[in-house]
Write a protein that binds this DNA or RNA. Structure first.
Length: 279
DNA sequence: AACCAGGCTAAAA
DNA sequence: TTTTAGCATGGT
């Protein structure tokens, strides 16, 4: 089933989204796939979609099962008006932020499968994006069908030595097995945590072994869709010291939280994408 | 060939 | 409470 949506380049740009470090398995298919020059595909939980810009009527066509269309509309966060918010960025006097926006039109914050986000960001710690993508793909190949993400009941029972072998997961393998068991026995309930208020959800997450402040904020932003989350990694630290040097860290965070209410996570994504692209 | 990467845990101070 | 060593491993 094909679902068409009229989306401007400022509303939706898959190249920007899939290279922004919030998602590790969205990809551009080889040219000609599905008979279209540029097709993208995504998979989240048990849902699958591919999509392309339809030059004939200037819409994006999304191809998925009819019952999954609601999921994908939420996944791409189509109910949020990013363009109107962009106007307020353009109207601000924040030079670095405006520069970031110019560089990343079409960014959106995805609402991804909780389990995949949970494991993916455990893997992301002290790691780099190309390597994170490879590790996740090996997991999908070895412990699933190569497309869908492996389930907790599979990951929970892999011997640690096996999980470390050839996956480049390193010491993170132990964390993955641990949380998989936690989800299986019910002591970790991602759906339940996702329904908590920000502070309670955050505190519940950082109690879990392998999850600290930064990973918790990523899970909350990209999985739970807490748009007030503002993950701070090594790149964001660089931004604060190099591009906002007139602020102390606390002053800077106050500025973000007071000026961009409900869109802090989106701001962070623009900045992160821009900073990483410059280097 | 060192240093870095979407950091965290646990021990030390 | 805040600071720091150690951690697996491939990318740059």
């Amino acid at each position: 089933m094909v679902f068409s949506k009229s989306l401007s380049a400022e509303e939706f740009n898959p190249e920007v989204i899939m290279n922004s470090g919030q998602v590790f398995r969205m990809k551009r298919e080889i040219p000609g796939a599905h008979g279209m020059p540029d097709t993208y595909s995504a998979c989240s939980g048990d849902n699958d979609v591919y999509f392309y810009l339809n030059k004939d009527n200037d819409t994006w066509d999304f191809v998925c099962e009819e019952a999954q269309w609601d999921f994908w509309q939420r996944y791409f966060d189509f109910e949020t008006d990013y363009v109107s918010f962009n106007d307020s960025v353009r109207a601000s006097s924040d030079k670095f932020l405006k520069e970031s926006l110019m560089d990343s039109f079409g960014m959106r914050i995805l609402r991804q499968d909780l389990w995949e986000v949970f494991i993916s960001y455990i893997i992301s710690q002290n790691n780099n994006i190309p390597k994170i993508k490879k590790s996740i793909q090996v997991l999908c190949d070895r412990y699933s069908d190569g497309i869908h993400f492996p389930k907790p009941d599979v990951l929970a029972f892999i011997p640690e030595t096996e999980l470390m072998d050839g996956t480049a997961l390193g010491y993170r393998a132990d964390y993955i097995i641990g949380v998989s068991k936690g989800v299986l026995d019910g002591s970790i309930d991602l759906e339940k945590i996702s329904s908590l208020p920000y502070d309670e959800a955050y505190n519940a997450l950082i109690k879990i072994k392998g999850i600290g402040p930064k990973v918790a904020n990523c899970i909350m932003l990209y999985g739970f869709h807490f748009m007030e989350s503002y993950p701070i990694d090594t790149w964001m630290k660089k931004i604060i010291t190099e591009d906002y040097s007139s602020y102390s860290k606390d002053e800077y965070l106050n500025y973000i939280n007071e000026s961009y209410i409900g869109f802090q996570g989106y701001i962070q994504q623009l900045q992160f994408y821009h900073k990483r692209k410059k280097k």
